[in-house]
Simulated assay, not measured.
Amino acid sequence: MRISIQMWKQAQPLLKIPASYLKMEVFNPWRLPKEKVIFIMGATGTGKSRLSIDLATRFPSEIINSDKIQVYKGLHIVTNKVTKEEQCGFPHHLLGIIDPNYDFNAKEFCITATHAVESIHQKGKLPIIVGGSNSYIKSLVLDPKYGFRSRYDCCFLWVDVPVPVLHNFVSQRVDKMVEAGIVDEVRGIFDPNKTDYSQGIRRAIGVPELDPYFRAEKTLDEAGQAKELQLAIQKIKQNTSKLVCRQLEKIHQLKHLKGWELHRVDATEAFRSRSKDQGDEAWEKLVARPSEKVVSRFLCDNSSTTEVATRSMIRTSVEGMDHMLV
C-alpha cells in the first residue's frame, strides 16, 4: 500500500494562521494538530537504514541521519554509511557532512536535526530520523529547550534482532569490512603522533583498535603482522558487540523507564535466512510491510471527528475575524 502526498497532508494544518491570531483567546481552547516525524531505532547492523529507504519508497519522505559517527565525512567502510546507490535518490540529511576532526555533539545534532525536520515539512514531506545513537534521539525528544515533543507527533519503530543472532552477523560484517579494505582506509588517517581517540571520527570503532597494529607492523615479520592484525580485528568485533548491548540497553530504558511507545518489528528471520532471496522475502513480509502499516495508521491519526470539528471551528473563527478586520 502506498500513501499519496495528498493523503499524508491530512496530518497537516488546513490553513496558515497569522501569529497575531494565535495570541487571541479564541484559539486557546483548541490545539492545532502536530506535524509528524518517524524515528527508526535499533542496534548496529539491524537494518535501520534499509527500512528507512523502504518507507521512503512508500511515503514522500526525506531521511535524517542520527548516527553520531556517520555524520562525519570520510571512512565510509568503517562507518558503514549507506551508499549513494543504496540511497535510491532520497535526500539524506546529516550524513557525511561534518569535518572528521570536529567534535560534533548532541546539542548541535538537536539544533541541526530540528532545522532539517522543519525544512522537510515545508516541502510537504515526511521526516524519517534513523540511526543507532539513542542518546541523540533522547536529547532531541526529551530536552524541553528544543520543544520537539510539543511541536511534533513522534512514531518510534524499533528494528529488533536477538543478541546472539546479531553478534554472529556483526562478526561476519567485520570480516566483510576487512575484505572491503578497512585496514587501508584507517591507515589513511593514522598519525603516529596522535594517541587521542576520543573526538571526531577517530572515535569510530575500527580506528583505535587498529592503532597498535600500525605502530608495530614495521618491526614485525609477516607472521607477526598477521597475528597483530587478527588481534585488532577481534577487538573490533568485541567492541562492536559491546556497542550492540549498550544500544539495546538504552532502547529498553526509553521503553520501560521513559514510557516511550516503541513499535517493535522482529527482523530475526531475515537474518537467519540462508539465501539472499529468502532473506529479502522475509524482510519484506516481517519488517517492511508491518512498518508500513504502523506508519500509515500514524499518519492518518489526525482524521478523527474531534480533529475535523476542531479545524472547522478554527476556520470559522478566522473567517469571522477576517470579516471584522475588513
Rank of each mutant, 00 (worst) to 15 (best):
K145I: 14
C154H: 04
V159K: 00
I129T: 07
S135C: 08
K138Q: 11
R149H: 04
S139T: 13
S139Q: 13
P144M: 13
S139V: 11
Y152Q: 08
K138M: 09
S133C: 02
V159E: 02
G131F: 03
I128G: 04
L142R: 13
N134D: 08
G147L: 11
C155L: 14
W158F: 07
W158N: 10
P144L: 12
L142V: 06
V141S: 10
V130M: 10
V130E: 15
S135N: 14
P144R: 09
Y136I: 00
L157F: 09
C155D: 12
D143P: 01
N134L: 13
D143S: 13
F148N: 11
Y152N: 11
K138V: 02
L140P: 00
V159G: 01
V130W: 09
D143F: 07
C155Y: 04
L157S: 10
R149S: 08
D160T: 14
R151Q: 13
N134H: 13
C155P: 06
I129A: 06
R151M: 09
S150K: 14
P144W: 05
G131R: 07
P144D: 12
W158P: 00
C155H: 12
P144A: 15
D160N: 15
G131I: 07
F156H: 15
L157E: 09
F156D: 06
D143V: 04
Y146M: 13
G147E: 15
V141T: 05
G131V: 09
I129Y: 03
W158I: 02
K145C: 13
V130F: 05
C154I: 07
F156N: 05
S150G: 05
L140R: 02
F148C: 08
I128V: 09
I137R: 05
R149C: 02
L142A: 12
S150H: 09
I128L: 04
P144E: 13
Y136H: 00
S139I: 07
G132W: 00
V141F: 08
D160K: 14
G132Y: 01
D160Q: 11
F148W: 07
C155E: 11
D160V: 09
Y152V: 04
Y146D: 14
K138E: 14
S139P: 01
I129C: 04
G147D: 15
D153S: 15
L142F: 08
C154K: 05
W158Y: 13
I128R: 04
C154V: 06
D143C: 07
S133A: 11
V159Q: 01
L157P: 03
S150F: 02
V159A: 01
V159F: 00
P144N: 14
R149G: 01
L157Q: 09
Y136T: 00
L142N: 15
S133E: 03
G131K: 06
S139G: 07
S139L: 10
W158H: 10
R149F: 03
P144Q: 10
D153V: 03
S150I: 02
L157G: 07
I129V: 12
Y136M: 01
V141L: 10
W158T: 02
G132E: 07
Y152F: 11
N134R: 05
